[in-house]
Write a protein that binds this DNA or RNA. Structure first.
Lengths: 215, 215, 215, 215
DNA sequence: AATGAATGAGCGTTCATTCAT
DNA sequence: CATGAATGAACGCTCATTCAT
């Protein structure tokens, strides 16, 4: 009985979250209305305020729902692999982050868009999560440079490039499908794309001497 | 007098566009209200509907204002340089696009965010502009592969990587400044970052044989 | 166990009533929400509907809780004292009503405010309680005039003045404390103020001949 | 043309104010909805926020609309008459305030009710207006006592009694009409009631020696 | 060209209440 | 008896837009 009750509760909250992710992804946070979400979730609009404390609470819930496991994943990979080989660690990050994003493709797309705004909430999320994320990745690059695995490039630029490559397909899934005819939703896209990322990582290792020659 | 009148008109329209770009950039299209824009532009709200045919018209105006010169620039570079050297052409594209984005940094940020939405308008812009843009870039990659300048990677993936690198700093200017302490607004950032992009382009040339060795 | 249960019930009802009086007094009936009351009473909101048959029932309960003992008190005083001396009876009324109001200061304040509204409920309360109250007081004045104790003024006006004096401090307790620096909550205020009322009552007796002289 | 425009504006604002006073008086501020007011004023609901900056602004507007002329009137009377004769000045106050209240009977009733609440706004109104009002009245009593015109009673109590008498009929107009069968709206009520107030004022003059005798 | 009143739809939210558990 | 999920109506308010001036 308790189980049923709990499951019912879960279902309502989850129905709302699912509908919210879908609508926020398609029309943006500001472009989606509580009523629309409730309708799509087949739920009373008042329940959204009841469960999440308002539309803003729903947004925060989703942001946490993304960044918490995201950072946990990142943390785990870095902790386990950085001492083995920084560049290999980078490859692992690339592959797992791509997988993670693909598994939460709508949430990812929406969160990445929302983080481009200039709001208190975004600033808070940046200082809470993106600072950590960036620290992890920079650490790996730095270690790679130290160990001579990686050419000596500014780690900030490397982070931008790396993140750009990883985020791009999930920020613009519709661009991929309608212009490039790629399906980021499908498994083999990530598989092939992550190999491409690995090539870029390899290039970090190899370019330096050549670069020096060029000079 | 007619001249003054016309100049006033221009100024009013421009004041609105300027205010709109600023607010759309900070709070998003849906998050900014006509009244707010009008207030910031010190203009009567009714004039926005009058001049631009409504809020949506203002949005379309800004999207064109971005993509028309953007594509003209891209078109010019490709036409002029592709026959010389595809990879050099790519570098030129990278450098000029970065400059272009930096010169319209708020507009760029806003347009790139808006294009992540799933709307009729976005689909239209994609089929009108992004298809062309992608065609140009893919053409360069293809030519590069044909001429043996560039390793044989899927051009779609290359486009994603290339665009990702170029767009990233201007999609997340606040991330750059607050987390990475980079100032995409300042000249030397683009200068240094474009050299980084060139390294990536160089890596396309060099990786292939090594990649083959790896196999 | 039954006893405990019943006591719990009593406590719950009383906790609600207490919280309701406090909130209704501060923010008005319409300005207070069931949830707020329930929260302050540390009780489930649904119980208010359950126990009192809704918010309106809670209001009626409180009105009765005020007017029933109020009228009983008035009735008792008039019955016992009117035959002795009408003016003395008036003084007794003044003193005891002041005391009664002070003992239920929040309830009094709230009820007196609520009775200024124009609603079915108020009309009902007026015809049920205020008619009786007024009848009692007018009777005393009439008797006083008959017996020559009191000057011949319109009893309606006398009632207004009398009630005005008695109600004023408890309708505006915050005015008294913040502007006049009087504390209607404290015992000696009523003590001193009731002597003031008695002076007014005395003046009823004395003024007439002098008034006539003045003319 | 300008005149017509201004008159139209005035009419809309005034229609809203009129409807608001009527509804606030009958059902209270919290009990009246913006839509209801707009409907009764035959006006678009959005215009209330447009003109008054929201429901609260409407309330503040009405409170000022009452207290500003009220205090101006009081100030004028006191300034002109206090030096002549404090007790005569009191009578003038009584008469003019009664007239003022009668001329704005609904507004008066509503304002007096609203001032019984415990809110920031009420506190502000008290410290802005009621402090002044009380200062004026107390000044008159004090002067009367100084000059020997008036018996030596605590001025705070005198203020309560005085205000109680003046406010009572307009706080409970429905009580007057339905229980006492008096019509505070009609001219002769004020006329007769103000004579009653004058009697009370006279009693202040005369009671003291008798009071002493009683002791 | 420019204004500001006016409109009607929709916003997020809160409300008192009901009901299954 | 007590709970908390759920409901539908209404809340105050803001929205983009229109229109007479």
């Amino acid at each position: 009985m308790d189980c049923i009750t709990r499951r019912d509760k879960m279902e309502t909250k989850d129905k709302v979250l699912e509908a919210a992710v879908s609508l926020f992804n398609a029309k943006g946070y500001q472009g989606s209305s509580i009523r629309e979400i409730a309708k799509q979730a087949d739920v009373n609009p008042a329940l959204i305020s009841y469960y999440f404390g308002g539309k803003k609470g729903l947004l925060e819930n989703l942001l946490l729902q993304f960044y918490e496991p995201y950072l946990a994943l990142l943390n785990k990979i870095v902790e386990e692999q950085i001492s083995v080989s920084p560049l290999y660690c980078l490859k692992q990050i690339g592959q797992h982050i791509l997988n993670f994003q693909q598994q939460h493709i709508q949430l990812t797309s929406f969160v990445y868009r929302e983080m481009t705004l200039d709001s208190m909430l975004v600033r808070e999320m940046m200082s809470t999560y993106l600072k950590k994320e960036t620290y992890y990745i920079q650490q790996v690059f730095t270690k790679g440079i130290e160990l001579g695995e990686c050419m000596n490039i500014p780690t900030e630029h490397a982070v931008i490039q790396f993140k750009g490559m990883l985020m791009m397909p999930f920020l613009y899934p519709r661009y991929l499908s309608e212009v490039l005819y790629l399906q980021p939703v499908e498994g083999y896209f990530v598989e092939r794309y992550s190999r491409q990322i690995e090539q870029w990582i390899d290039s970090l290792q190899l370019l330096e001497p050549l670069q020096l020659q060029a000079k």
